[in-house]
Design a protein around this nucleic acid. Structure first.
Lengths: 173, 173
DNA sequence: CCACACAGGTTACATTTGAAACCAATGTTA
DNA sequence: TAACATTGGTTTCAAATGTAACCTGTGTGG
């Protein structure tokens, strides 16, 4: 079959010999990273060009479009982005008038965030664009595969999440 | 069927009403990005701490471990990283003596790259580490799902690749 | 009421990253 | 063999990102 030519093909060395081997093209973390970058860049390029939005800014809008009135801290939870990224995205969006904020009267540190009218306008135009990209990707899969993918991503995600909490059990060699 | 509560659940507005809606948590590009970042950061952290390698540097080593003698340009093809990233990774690795380079006598612009002895040492210790992470992730999937994932990633990747070439057919609204 | 620890956000600084200009060396055309 | 386009690779500069320090404003213990 289409075995990509590898070192051992010419040396005859077995894959489990003393020498470690890694096929990057089949290495999951690598594949995820490449795929994710390609996809994100393509989409970010599209609305970046049209609306002058950065990817983090767009994410903030995406969340606020569905959950108006969230605070920055809550955005952090929802988006898995960090404090600073959110803060910067928000202040950019305030400057471009896509967002408005209201102080929470009971806790004066807290700022509630909303899409402005023009923000909603942009939101309503980007969402379909974003969906077109996603649909186009998904169109390359069968209905079955789309379901499988959902399940798989969920599992991988929750596994990876656990690393964040207690690292990978190390063999300490 | 486990519809996560969304705005329309409370408003009774239909998903296909005038107002666009996007569920970020289910939006493929977003999920890929979050998963990929978590995974990459976890792993990069691990060997970054132990061997002082950046992620791009590690990728370069990963490739050269299997395909010694490649040039920077060829690394670009293999890794989907760009010229500059490769150039920097390589010069860092030369400085830390994990890499050696030989001028190609027939084309004197071209540099052939090899892992040094100590580079090979590092490589041989990182590969198992990397594999442990991957295995740990994969362990959360059934054997079937692993196969499915492989197929799906391949499809998504080739779709995304086409965007790079002739963009997404735009409706120009 | 006065410390003190803590949560929400922002700012400052250092690093990383990417785009474009750049410097060879090579190939090509005439 | 003189021009010119091309390719391998590096450098430069600006923008994006992450970390840690920092300023509020809130809660809590004494």
């Amino acid at each position: 079959m289409s075995e990509t030519k590898g070192p051992e093909a010419t040396t005859g060395e077995s894959p489990e010999s003393r020498t470690a081997e890694l096929r990057l093209e089949k290495f999951l973390p690598y594949r995820l990273s490449v795929l994710s970058n390609r996809v994100s860049n393509a989409i970010a390029g599209a609305y970046g060009a049209k609306f002058g939005l950065t990817l983090p800014a767009w994410r903030v809008m995406a969340i606020l479009g569905r959950y108006p009135g969230l605070s920055a801290a809550e955005l952090v939870e929802q988006t898995a982005m960090d404090k600073v990224a959110i803060s910067r995205a928000v202040s950019a969006l305030l400057k471009s008038e896509y967002l408005e904020r209201k102080e929470d009267q009971v806790d004066r540190r807290r700022q509630m965030l909303y899409l402005s009218e023009s923000g909603k306008g942009v939101y309503n135009r980007i969402v379909p664009l974003a969906k077109r990209y996603e649909n186009d990707l998904m169109a390359s899969l069968t209905e079955e595969e789309r379901v499988q993918l959902d399940v798989i991503l969920e599992k991988l995600m929750s596994r990876a999440l656990e690393w964040g909490m207690h690292g990978l059990a190390s063999h300490e060699d």
